[in-house]
């Protein structure tokens, strides 16, 4: 390489524990980055691929953008919802198409049809205060956010708030709690994200991985 830098060929990748974990590893496998099943399944938080070119961190989904923005991980796989909420300053070269669902406003079946535009203010329980505030204020509707870190669908049943903003995959969780989608906000799927400095300093290795992933997505 003509560049004065010795290229560091090892890339570190932050992956989301939980919902996206298996799909992300499967996708990486198809792109030629193979991880021993025993490594990935062993609940280790840090492990390598077979070639030793990649190191993986398993972190909480909401933390993936943070690790990548600060360059602790060169790359990451994060849901679009998490990314939007974090406002992390990172490159987003690929939509990986996994973990597809919808971020939506939902409410009890009985009142779902009632137009909340006519309320003086809407009260929403959510894990996504930033996206929710943005969604409502953009339409000129005052919103009161009740931040919850999980089990958001319980909020209407327990009388905390009539409506919620949350991810909807099949709609079953909503239905089980007597809720339905009032209004979709945006489609969600997992993105590949890249630290801005790593994108430049480890450009070869990063571009190669992006290309491999893109090829395997198009197959």
């Amino acid at each position: 390489m003509s560049n004065g830098l010795k290229s560091e060929e090892i890339l570190s990748v932050a992956l989301s524990k939980g919902r996206l974990q298996d799909a992300a590893l499967e996708l990486l496998g198809r792109a030629g980055v193979e991880v021993d099943g025993s490594e990935a399944g062993s609940r280790k938080l840090i492990f390598q691929d077979r070639s030793g070119c990649f190191q993986f961190f398993m972190v909480k989904p909401v933390d993936v953008p943070t690790y990548v923005e600060y360059g602790v991980a060169d790359l990451g796989v994060a849901g679009w919802d998490v990314l939007l909420e974090s406002e992390a300053d990172v490159h987003q070269p690929l939509d990986l198409g996994i973990g597809r669902c919808v971020l939506a406003v939902a409410g009890p079946r009985s009142t779902a049809r009632k137009n909340y535009r006519e309320l003086s203010a809407v009260r929403i329980a959510t894990k996504y205060p930033r996206i929710t505030t943005d969604h409502f204020t953009r339409q000129g509707i005052p919103v009161e956010i009740i931040y919850l870190s999980g089990s958001v669908e319980l909020a209407p049943r327990l009388g905390l708030s009539e409506r919620i903003v949350d991810l909807v995959a099949t709609g079953r969780t909503l239905a089980d709690n007597g809720l339905e989608v009032i209004e979709p906000i945006c489609d969600v799927s997992a993105r590949l994200i890249v630290n801005r400095a790593s994108y430049q300093v480890k450009r070869r290795a990063v571009s190669r991985l992006i290309q491999q992933l893109a090829d395997s997505l198009n197959r």
């Binding site: 830098l5 560091e8 600060y70 360059g71 602790v72 400095a197 790593s198 300093v201």
Partner: peptide
């Protein structure tokens, strides 16, 4: 121009 140093996630 932006100046990067390996090992730091920001210019």
């Amino acid at each position: 121009f932006k100046i990067y140093v390996p090992g730091l996630g920001f210019e």
